[in-house]
Design a protein around this nucleic acid. Structure first.
Lengths: 229, 229
DNA sequence: ATATGTATGTTGAAATTTCAACAAAAGGAG
DNA sequence: CTCCTTTTGTTGAAATTTCAACATACATAT
């Protein structure tokens, strides 16, 4: 009983986050705790740089990031890292693979800083109470919206990485960030090496290009803070 | 009445295709015609090289390719073409944008050869009979699976295009095709220019690389038919 | 403040891509 | 078959990326 109260308390701490989570869109707070319990949601913490899901692991879990930040990364045969995207609090991860019925993950999800994560067995979302539970139906709809949004994200990423030069990729990315934030000044969620691994270019070449654009008066930056001029 | 019979007849011609379409998974033939009518599905034909949906068009339609083949392409400000993926009969297109609620399409869908297409207003799939119609619920679930599968497709494409050299991209693509077909010999759905636009590389460089790999005894190819040795 | 480790910037050489231009091959139309 | 168009292959020069190595800046802990 005490344990349940604690659990409630802990989860209430994250209501603000869970409310914004696409999986629970249009689901009222008063139903949320019961749902989470029904879904068998488990809260887990990870230290900075810890791998939350590893490439090759079972793909049956869906994660919800409660706090911190993470990245979806892929390592090829030679160990080259490619960063697919970042994950911010309230966002789902792993849902594509679970929903597509993949056995194992083709990517890893890595904690960027200390993270708290809610893990849900995808079977509980996809395969239970098929006959009518309103919440369940809503979750399937929400998942559909979420997956469509992820698809758009991939289109946007392709728009950036399809460019042929480091300069064009960088400018396309910064233009995208400007459009997203609505400001010509913003923080990017990557350090230099990470930005290079996201844009699929060489880090030193990227640094050189940033320096050149700065000298040309196109942009200014201090660490992760970029300004387009 | 005659018109309806014709419509039935025409659609029956494509039952084999529609049965395989992810949107209608687990929906029985006897319900299909009524559903298509209810969804306001319209059959349209397109000549080779015709643009089925154009970048910038309204994103409210979902397409089902009935015959022929098409490609999802994007043109940037300078007119550079990038091929996102191919579309084969029975596959959906445009559903990501409709389901994500985008206003306009960020890509075009172009007929590769004469095509027949079934167009469905996404509003009829997403926003009608929210209270219980079993078919409708099933379609949402099917869309969710389809979108998850498209997501996986993007991951696979990133796996290929994240490689840094033409040679690596080409070999990654051919390895993927080998895995898909289960054979070391297969036809690719692209001519040279299209393959280059799919891999995001220069066509002449690609031709040169194919020639080099052939001389090295790694592969053989005649037109679109590739053999890995 | 110093030391230590990490992140970022810089450089030059080697490898690769792009680009333009042309040659060769393949396919269609008359 | 020939002409014409499209596709594919080839080439060399210019631009760009990658790679390795090192220098500098920054952050943190002692």
């Amino acid at each position: 009983m005490l344990k349940f109260q604690q659990k409630e308390k802990i989860l209430k701490k994250y209501f603000g986050i869970l409310r914004k989570c696409s999986l629970f869109s249009e689901i009222e707070d008063r139903h949320l705790i019961a749902m989470l319990s029904c879904l068998g949601a488990k809260r887990v913490s990870f230290d900075k740089k810890y791998t939350i899901f590893a490439q090759g692991n079972s793909a049956k879990y869906i994660g919800i990031l409660l706090s911190g930040s993470a990245q979806i990364v892929r390592h090829d045969y030679y160990g080259n890292r490619s960063i697919v995207s970042g994950v911010m609090p309230g966002e789902l991860f792993g849902e594509s693979f679970a929903c597509a019925g993949m056995e194992v993950l083709p990517v890893s999800i890595v904690a960027n800083e200390p993270c708290e994560v809610l893990l849900i067995d995808s079977g509980h979302v996809l395969h239970t109470c098929t006959n009518g539970c309103e919440f369940h139906r809503r979750m399937i709809y929400n998942l559909m919206r979420d997956l469509a949004a992820k698809n758009i994200m991939f289109h946007q990423k392709l728009d950036i990485t399809a460019k042929r030069t480091t300069r064009e990729k960088l400018l396309a990315y910064l233009a995208y960030m400007e459009q997203q934030t609505g400001k010509n000044e913003f923080e990017i969620p990557f350090d230099r090496q990470e930005l290079a691994d996201y844009l699929e270019v060489d880090r030193s070449g990227l640094s050189a290009e940033i320096g050149k654009l700065r000298r040309e008066g196109v942009l200014d930056c201090r660490k992760n803070h970029f300004t387009l001029l």
